[in-house]
Amino acid sequence: MSAPNGGFAIDARGLSKTFGPRTAVRDLSLTVKRGEIFGFLGPNGAGKSTSIKMLLGLVHPTGGQGSVLGAPLGAPSVRRDIGFLPEDFRFYDWLTATELLVLHGRLAGLTDAKARARAPEVLELVAMSPHAHRRLRGFSKGMLQRLGLAQALIHEPALIFLDEPTSGLDPMGRRMVRDVIRLQRDRGATVFLNSHLLSEIEITCDRVAFIKDGEIVASRDMADASAAGARHVSVRARNASAAMLGRIAPPATNPSLSGDEIRFDVPFEDAIADVVRALVEAGAQVVRVSPERTSLEDEFMRLVGEDHAL
């Protein structure tokens, strides 16, 4: 970890990519610290995938330079410590889930024995254990996506690139992705996450950059107290009363009542369920729970413009 670039996992300076007349990424400069969960947010076609591909050496930049884990972009040896989930994960469909993972483990530099030992572990992580010996041919999009994630993690890389990891996943799958990302953070890994799903970024990331038309237009530190972590929630209950506000306990804050709407703030989405349970136990006949637009979402909409409404 004694990299010459001050220990940055990713250091990009002025990376650009043009495809013919079309500029996909313009002057991309960013640094990601080791151990950081970095979110890259932007609408369709903004240049997120192209940026990841440049950092991975898949796409050759037409300008600028960068380093990843202290090595120049595209250096093969450093890829031992890198995991990548492509946007649309595909592989030979005659392989079984386990065969695919063992193959990728070996390609990533694990011994055969180690790859075989790790395969069931990562399958478990992505909740695919029951399908361990099925062939990919019969897999749904979400199942392939889960395998793609497992493949990116099998060699316990120090830096993980995830391009839209939740695309095609059901709510359980999205939650699984969040848990996996947290696990990677706990392990000390760096995660670079592409998404246009705000909730995903909001919950998991330490820092976010917004990209639009190939340019970073804003970036923001999510650890910052005023940052978007906090959510306003309003609960509509037929018999809402001031007495119920007493049941709203930390981490939820700022309870208030107006009409049949009970309002409060939570620091993270997962806290909402506990509050609602407490309200129901207090006799509230809940008809609707609506988390309000977060400031991150507002900011995204403002930056991206309404024509890109997602």
Binding site: S77, R79, R80, I82, F84, P86, H104, L107, A108, G109
Partner: peptide, 8 residues
């Protein structure tokens, strides 16, 4: 993509 990003 998943092959070309391996240490190879």
């Amino acid at each position: 993509l998943a092959i070309a990003t391996k240490p190879i």
